[in-house]
Structures are given as structure tokens and as C-alpha cells.
Write a protein that binds this DNA or RNA. Structure first.
Lengths: 225, 225
DNA sequence: AAAACAATTTTGATTAATCAAAGTTGACGC
DNA sequence: GCGTCAACTTTGATTAATCAAAATTGTTTT
């Protein structure tokens, strides 16, 4: 059985890898993501390779094997179903469920997970808009674009919040930018690196490029309503 | 912060200690309960003492300090509320919730725990009949007797199942001996070490002394109905 | 009291995860 | 084509939890 630490490394590697690519994830990127020293990552990657969960190329990086990807998707399924459960059933604070799920995902058995899935009616996405892998390990990718790249006039529906830290999520929540909400891009300014948004409730707000890049949307129409 | 292992040791020490007594728990008993070697327990007890969670007297045993008892009661509260939640909300198999709760209790934050408590309406007992400590660390002890000691003719209500292994719990469940059920002691035989029980649904069954000692009951009447 | 025994502690080792600091390496700039 | 530097790996050490096997101790038994 994989330890909690191994589960976390494999999950992070999966999330750092470009989807549909077979590129290697660099040790440095992983070290930053896991908040550990570079040497620790090197040691761990050798371990993952020996366990058959990943291929490790010294000075290049790491790539999950089929087995590693299966484990990563299982962890992602646990994490996201648990998040969904915490929000819809236990009414935990939307901005804090990520931290709770980070702990719980390692303690939820497959047996329990499927009960949770059934209870929730097999949702397709978690509260942040991320897709929930199926029990069979399939993940349905939607055709989303980053809000940062949207042109003025476009009407969009917020689909997914990529950054999961509590302060950012709190901002999203407080400003009505949660998945499912509608908005219109009023103006963009490349030089100033800002994007101006008009929300369904009539309010307007301005986002910096970095924040707007963390929000994925569905484009509803190419022109203003 | 206490590790998962420390949490488990402290909980076990609490459960092995005679309630209301200040007797020491022997290292050997703990080793058996934790399924570790005696030497491991010695090492751990020194650690618990250094952490201020227990007093350790070499060759005598261990006793929780006030801090250790607080931690033990917190773990018990988590364990039992989680069990209750798994049964009432997620409909997990009554006989298997102990195993699941054993894992989950270490991953449930205090914040989440109180949400679960509120969701359940602050139950006083878990599905096996064990009392759930309050958030303040108080435990309400009921006046129960072991079924094994009951005399023929007594009407009883099943209150608490002490043994928590799945096969035993499955037997209890399959035979309608779950907490809340009523029964009457039909006959006892000290020499044969058996006790004959008549249930509310009309069936009768015979328990050995060891099994009957693991079932705690409330006595409803001293004489037959 | 000495021997025997059972429980407990010590000792020496192992595994997993980590760090800091020293050593390598490969690519990039000049 | 050679030095420099950032990224990566190695090395040596630490902490937590564990074991097996040897040493100790306290209590029975004879």
C-alpha cells in the first residue's frame, strides 16, 4: 500500500503534468509544489520509480507510469468527492474544504468513497469546478478557456477555479465568482494587466491578469448581449 | 501536534484503564491491545511521559495525565461521532464502521467534527451504545450491567456492545441484538457457561459466557413480564 | 535461599521522510 | 571553447515508529 506521502507526490505529479502530454515534470517544480527541499524530491523520485509508479530520468524529471496515473486519479476522485460532500452535506465553508479534503482523502476507503458518490448522485464536478474522475479512472475534460484570455464583449459562465488557497477562494466567494455564475467581459487592458467584469447581479469588478488566469470559463456568446 | 500513533496509544490507555480508578495500565496489556512488541511500548511510554501526556513508572505501567485524558476523550468523541455519521447518513454496514472510523478519526478536524455533531443533533451514544464525550470532554456514564451476570426472568434492553470486531458485530446484527432491542433472560447455566435469551420477535438464542460478557444491558424489570 | 519464570527494558537495526550543506553537471553567455 | 550559475544529486544526520533478541528484574516455587 502507498503511504500518504507517496499518494501526495503522485497526485502532485499528475496535476503538474500537462494533460495529454508525455513531458517530464521537473524535480524543482515538484519540490516547490510539495514544499520540501530539492534533495528530498530526488530521494522520493527514486522511490517512486522502484515502486513502479513513475519513470525517473536524473536531471530531467519524472513521469507517471500507468500504475501511477491510476493512483493519481483515484486520489483526485477521493479529494473531489470529499470536497463535494463537505460542501453539500455538511455545509463547510466553501473556501476551506480543500484543506479538509487534503487530510481526509488519505483516510477514505474505496468502500466509503462509493457510498459518498452514491449519496451525492455521482456528481461530475467538485465545488471548484474540477472534474471528478470516474471509479474506472476516466476524466471528462471540458472545453474551457482562461478568463484572462477573453476579449471584451464576451459573455461567459464561470466554470472552474484553479487556485485552491483559502484567501483566494474567499475572494471568489465574496465577489460572486463561484462556478455556475454568469458574467460579461467589459474591458481588458493588456498594458495595465487588468480585466473588467460585469456580473449578473449588476456589480462590476476588476481583476489582475494573474487572478484572471486562475479562473476558467465557458464562453456563452461572442458578442455582447 | 500529536501523531496518529500517539493518538492511538493515548486512546487505548484510556480504554484499558478502569474508569474512575487511578490504577496503572501495564505495558504488556498495551502491547497486546496495540499489536506491537513489548519493547516498542516501553519506548513509546517514555515518549508519552516526555510529551506530558502520561506518567510512566518503569515495570509498573502508565497512567494518563489530565492532558492525556483530554486528548483521549477528544479521540473518542471523534471516533464515535464518525461512527454515528457513517451509519445514519452514509448507511455503511453497521459491523464495519469501527474500521472506517479508526482511520477517519485522525483526519477529522475539530471544525469538521462540530459540523458532524450538529448534523446528527448531538447524539449521546454511538451505534454500538458507547457514550459520546461532549465537546467539553465530559462523558455521561450509564448504569449498565453485563448480560452475563443477569438472572433468569429479567427483562432487559440491549444498551452497548463492547467488542468491536466485524465478525462479532455481524453476529449481533444478524441476530437482532443491536442496542435498543428488548430481550428476556430465559435461563442460565453456570456450569455449561451459557445464557438463554428470548427476543422481542419471538426467537430464542443461546450465548456463551464470553459473548454475554461483551453485551451490556439496562435491566427493565426484576421479574418476568 | 536459590532457581526458575514471566514481564519488562535495553540494545542494535531497519524503514520512511525529511533537512542542510557539499558536490556535480549541463547549458548559456561571452 | 571555457567559465559561471542555477538546477539537481549526494552525503551525512535527524526524528518517529517499529522489531528481534539479549539483558534485567521482581516474583513465585521449590
Amino acid at each position: 500500500m502507498a503511504t500518504t506521502t507517496v499518494e501526495n507526490y503522485v497526485k502532485r505529479i499528475y496535476l503538474l503534468a500537462e494533460p495529454e502530454t508525455d513531458a517530464f515534470v521537473s524535480p524543482g517544480a515538484l519540490a516547490a509544489e510539495m514544499s520540501v527541499s530539492p534533495g528530498t524530491v530526488t530521494t522520493m523520485l527514486k522511490g517512486l520509480a522502484k515502486a513502479g509508479l513513475a519513470e525517473y530520468e536524473p536531471r530531467t524529471g519524472v513521469r507517471l507510469t500507468a500504475g501511477g496515473e491510476t493512483l493519481a486519479l483515484r486520489m483526485l476522485r477521493k479529494h473531489r468527492l470529499v470536497e463535494m460532500f463537505l460542501v453539500s452535506v455538511l455545509k463547510l465553508d466553501w473556501a476551506e474544504i480543500n484543506e479538509e479534503a487534503e487530510l481526509l482523502e488519505h483516510a477514505v476507503s474505496d468502500r466509503l468513497l462509493e457510498k459518498i458518490d452514491a449519496f451525492l448522485g455521482s456528481p461530475a464536478h467538485d465545488p471548484h469546478g474540477d472534474p471528478i474522475p470516474t471509479a474506472g479512472g476516466k476524466i471528462v475534460r471540458r472545453n474551457l478557456v482562461r478568463l484572462a484570455g477573453c476579449e471584451p464583449g464576451k459573455r461567459v459562465r464561470i466554470a472552474c477555479i484553479r487556485r485552491q488557497d483559502a484567501p483566494f477562494l474567499r475572494y471568489i466567494l465574496d465577489n460572486g465568482l463561484t462556478p455556475g455564475e454568469y458574467a460579461r467581459v467589459v474591458a481588458t487592458d493588456t498594458e495595465a494587466d487588468v480585466l473588467r467584469l460585469s456580473l449578473a447581479n449588476g456589480t462590476e469588478l476588476t481583476l489582475g491578469g494573474k487572478a484572471a488566469a486562475e479562473i476558467e470559463v465557458e464562453v456563452i456568446s461572442g458578442k455582447r448581449a
